[in-house]
Amino acid sequence: MSPAHTRLSRRQLLVSLIAIPLFSPRSVFAQTAGTDSDIARASALLTGRSTLAPETAMRVQELLSAQDAAFPSHLASLIRALETASGTDPQTLSDSLSDTDAATALAILEAWYLGYVGSVSTSSMDYDGKFVTYLQALMFEPTGDVTPRPAYSKRGANYWSAVPEGVAAPAMADNVATWGLAGLKPTTSPPDPDPAWLYMMQGYATTITAARAALAGGAAPLTSDEVNAKSLAAAQASAGAQTTGAQTSDSETREGDSK
């Protein structure tokens, strides 16, 4: 078998597996790539940043249009709303939007902050998320002085042992940062936990305030036997086959996050 044959075969197979519908024809938007395009103006207003690359704004537009053919008209509606609203503060502007315009704004904002559009998976290759940008992903900007954009550390070895920028470190033992036996080692055994914190860890509260209120109202953390019984019952609930790639649901615990 010739190498050329291998290559062709592999290319074909790859394309058959991962080919994703390509972007809509570039010509539709290419001539509008500039800071004055609707998408560039909307991006600037929604993020409060005037230095976003217009090329990347166009990428956002093309990807969102590929995802939803109605995006161009939604964008037109959004930019009208943004430019007729009073003020320039992104929070105020966003709060004033209709539900439809807010959804469009959310899609644009997610693209800029997270650096992709669509959904992604941590445990399957079956996702439709598309890359927008990494070096400009805005979610890293607020922390750029303290932590790296992963894979692009801007510092040298062992910088991480210093107190991070802007942190007032509590007093600690002189040997706290020493690994091994010369560092800190316990002199007691771990205590029995406080019931309210245990109650939280069992998934019944997300804050200690809520946990204490529940206990005051008569609730109590499960005993070890009850934990084991509950766990075994959960295993039996409706055992069946799943396929790798199914994302673990953590909605039960995430609810309390949006307080």
């Binding site: 972007f23 570039r26 690359a53 090329e55 990347t56 990428r59 093309e62 890359f131 990494y134 400009q136």
Partner: peptide, 15 residues
């Protein structure tokens, strides 16, 4: 520029 070093708009990254 940053847009130059991220993949081209019409390009699908080849792995």
């Amino acid at each position: 520029s940053i847009p130059d070093i991220e993949p081209p708009l019409s390009g699908l990254n080849d792995y």
